[in-house]
Computed example of a mutant assay.
Amino acid sequence: MSNLLYWAVLFLIIGLVSAAFGFGGLAGTAIAGARILFWVAIVLFIIALIGGLLNRRGGL
């Protein structure tokens, strides 16, 4: 698992545990951080995938 996805999962777990114990502000912040890191990881994955495909074809 990539480092960004590791942090996204960690923030998600922190947010879920915080929400279970009633810490609304901390839970919302952790979930928002997890969401941002998840989408950044997805975008970087797509960029790497496209770059790998172009490199294999001999482009760029």
Rank of each mutant, 00 (worst) to 15 (best):
A41K: 05
G28S: 11
V43D: 06
G22S: 08
R56Q: 00
I13G: 06
L10Q: 14
G51H: 04
L60H: 05
L49R: 12
G58T: 03
G59K: 11
S2C: 15
G28H: 09
G51Y: 03
Y6Q: 14
A32M: 10
R57L: 14
I31E: 05
G59C: 09
F11V: 01
L44E: 06
L54C: 04
L53E: 02
L37N: 01
F45K: 11
L16P: 05
G22T: 07
V40D: 00
L54Q: 02
A20F: 09
A30E: 04
G15A: 00
L53H: 05
V17Q: 05
L10Y: 13
G33F: 07
L49M: 14
I50D: 00
Y6T: 15
A41Q: 06
L44K: 09
L37G: 04
L16D: 09
I46P: 01
I36T: 10
R35E: 14
V9D: 08
I50C: 00
G15K: 00
G22H: 10
G52V: 07
S2Y: 08
Y6N: 14
A20M: 09
L44N: 09
G28I: 13
L4I: 04
L26E: 08
S18I: 05
I36G: 09
G22W: 06
A34H: 02
G22Y: 06
G25K: 15
R56W: 00
G59R: 11
G25I: 15
L44T: 06
A48C: 08
L60M: 07
G33T: 06
I42N: 08
A20E: 10
I42Y: 05
G28T: 13
A48Y: 00
L53P: 03
Y6M: 13
T29F: 15
L49Y: 12
W7M: 10
F45D: 12
G51F: 01
G59E: 11
A20W: 10
R56A: 02
F21S: 12
G22Q: 08
F38A: 08
G25A: 15
I46G: 02
W39R: 14
G22N: 05
L53S: 05
L37R: 05
G25S: 15
I31M: 06
A20H: 11
G15L: 00
L53M: 12
A34S: 12
A8E: 01
A30W: 03
I36R: 12
V9I: 13
T29I: 15
I50L: 02
S18P: 07
N3C: 13
L54T: 02
R35A: 14
A32H: 04
L12A: 12
L37E: 05
L60N: 05
G58K: 02
L16K: 12
N55E: 13
V9R: 08
L53C: 04
A27P: 10
M1S: 14
L4R: 02
V40I: 12
V40S: 01
A48P: 01
A19R: 14
A34E: 01
W7H: 11
F45P: 04
F38W: 12
V17N: 03
N55I: 07
R35I: 14
I13S: 08
A30D: 03
F21A: 14
L26P: 04
A30C: 09
W7T: 03
V40K: 01
A19S: 12
G24I: 15
A34M: 03
G15Y: 00
G22K: 08
G15N: 00
V43C: 08
